[in-house]
Design a protein around this nucleic acid. Sequence first.
DNA 1: AATGAATGAGCCTTCATTCAT
DNA 2: AATGAATGAAGGCTCATTCAT
Lengths: 215, 215, 215, 215
Amino acid sequence: MTTTRDPSAPTTVDTRDRILVAAANVLARRGFAEAKLREIADLAAVRPPAVYYYFSSREELLAEVLHTGQQRVRLHVASALAALPAGTDHETRIAAACAAHLSIQTAMADFARAVSRNIAHAHGPAHEQLHRESEAYHDLWRGLLSAAAADGAIRTDLDLSTARMFVIGALNGSTEWFHGTDDTERLIEQAQALVRHGLRPPRPTRPHRSTKGSP
Amino acid sequence: MTTTRDPSAPTTVDTRDRILVAAANVLARRGFAEAKLREIADLAAVRPPAVYYYFSSREELLAEVLHTGQQRVRLHVASALAALPAGTDHETRIAAACAAHLSIQTAMADFARAVSRNIAHAHGPAHEQLHRESEAYHDLWRGLLSAAAADGAIRTDLDLSTARMFVIGALNGSTEWFHGTDDTERLIEQAQALVRHGLRPPRPTRPHRSTKGSP
Amino acid sequence: MTTTRDPSAPTTVDTRDRILVAAANVLARRGFAEAKLREIADLAAVRPPAVYYYFSSREELLAEVLHTGQQRVRLHVASALAALPAGTDHETRIAAACAAHLSIQTAMADFARAVSRNIAHAHGPAHEQLHRESEAYHDLWRGLLSAAAADGAIRTDLDLSTARMFVIGALNGSTEWFHGTDDTERLIEQAQALVRHGLRPPRPTRPHRSTKGSP
Amino acid sequence: MTTTRDPSAPTTVDTRDRILVAAANVLARRGFAEAKLREIADLAAVRPPAVYYYFSSREELLAEVLHTGQQRVRLHVASALAALPAGTDHETRIAAACAAHLSIQTAMADFARAVSRNIAHAHGPAHEQLHRESEAYHDLWRGLLSAAAADGAIRTDLDLSTARMFVIGALNGSTEWFHGTDDTERLIEQAQALVRHGLRPPRPTRPHRSTKGSP
DNA sequence: AATGAATGAGCCTTCATTCAT
DNA sequence: AATGAATGAAGGCTCATTCAT
């Protein structure tokens, strides 16, 4: 009856990760309250009590999934923007942010879905952390858009806040209908096209050499 | 026997409705699995067993909330489109659909949120129904966009399916950040602007000669 | 929405009886704890609260079913014995008791089964009454057997108490396997044969000089 | 590590068995629907959820009690018959079956009562199993009686089916009135006497020429 | 490093019963 | 004479969590 483990099998570190990944999957599929420790443990090939060796509670495990999912997206987008050559025009920067968001979101689909499908119902201590991280991501976009607007790269009839919410909402929403098996490049192009034209002023932005050039 | 009703003496119809509305609220705030009958009953000012006088189970109650939420949006949008004068141009029709969607979504915020926050986790018999209704709504938009595209009212680089998903996703997503206390008219204008420019071809849509030839 | 009743329909008295008969049926089929007021009411074509117009509680209703079932058997057997000509021999009297028991038991199958299947689990105030009535029936048989024994009509190796329990047990047990559609006369003959030979002493009882002369 | 077990430290096996035995007792006393998990758990000295560690549901637990109760009786009677010397005469075989039945029934009184008092109300999946096991036991007796009848060891006026039902019914019925504190040997003798004479033909069974011819 | 055994807390659901009508 | 509406009480079951090992 002893469940001897293959010595060559994943070590401790792997187990913690297996549990985290399993939790992301279950959390995405079932939702917060329906993400049972039993199903997570099954998926991670351990018994439920094993979870408590790595996480102090179910709540903490799920919170880590959500936080990881959120943070990775923000960091990935931030990296992508940082990697752009200095002086890259606003439209391109925004497009790059879209691409990075969709790219990481697709690559970490379970984590991304875990976030988008459960953040609304988060409560307790985890809620604070999620809110902060979310705010950080929005700050990133806020900067992106206000810089663009300052350079006249966004139509003046648009409210930057509202536009930002719609754009991020559209990107996040794609986890619900876009699946990894589809063509991610194409998804990105479409999103970029919609966003670019949705925000772009009547006349193409002058390549930004400054604030406002005179005609 | 007076014509005025004693507000403290709810009738049958009121009770069922109170429970449904309460369920929508709790379902939106807590999520499917955390929508406890106890909280719903408290909100409806009845004792939990009373729910079973009107609904055969918690599951059925919540399913009705979701179905109602979905259906109302679709019917409202369909009505709005039907009310447009024959020959209305495509851009205007799409804008009207956006307006109707956001308008009803704001008016029935709890139901709308109950849907958008829980449809991903629906399972069992309810899932089927939700999927069907959702499909019907997408059919509506599919028709809207393909008719527009056929008349050259949508940029040719756009994939209609993907564009549709992004647009509907963005509209639905607004339940998460737009609150009834804000200015709904402004929200609608912003959404319409984003969608209009996001989809519109380089040159303004030919004035729609569409239906009837010009004199 | 008014459920007007056909004036020619059964009157009050009938309703009470319908409920009682329905209760016997449900009690026999489901058992005490599973005999739900709802099913009884359905069968009696009334709504559950109507039961309270005729009976003070579910408990009382079910108790009346059990008591009625028990009492009718005893009274029927007593009548049958009383109807025998004075001086009837013991074997014949016992056979007559068997016949009467099986006969009424078959005729009131639901009541009889309600009793035999539930008396063991009776508790509370009803238990007392059932026990008393049961005791009265056993007294009847006690008298029957001890009179027979006194006249040498029962084998001396038999313990009258034990024999009585076995005989009554066998008769009652037949409700479980004998159904009204079978041949009741044949059932009675078989039971009489078994009991007669089971109790009879090696040499046929001297006819007590009564009915039949010897060949 | 000592060979003596600490009575206050029940092992797994003990717990499951304690629960089963407790369930038999409660099932016998209260009946199927009134056999509350709480009372069973109390009797087994565990908390109610512990039951679910060993049984998948209350229904399954109770079903196992009933099945065990039925099966043990059949197996015990079958063993007893198998242990008889080849060529044992029919009357003796039938008497041995009666003895074995009453003996095991007394030894496992709670299980036996659980069966006899609840089998009539069994329903659902459990009913099937109970019916099959019951049928197997009746098959055993059917063989016993028809073999006897074939050798002229049973009165020809008896219907074997009906006789079998009365006999088994009488034996089973004794759980209701015979208690372990009474003299089981005496009970068996009485039952055997009743059955023997009830079935025996006018002239003693021809010795069946059984094992060894008389000198 | 991980588990078998067990439990406290809590929820859905059923049901007998009440009461105004 | 009978019912629609509603409820208090109670039970089965699930689940996160603990702890000795």
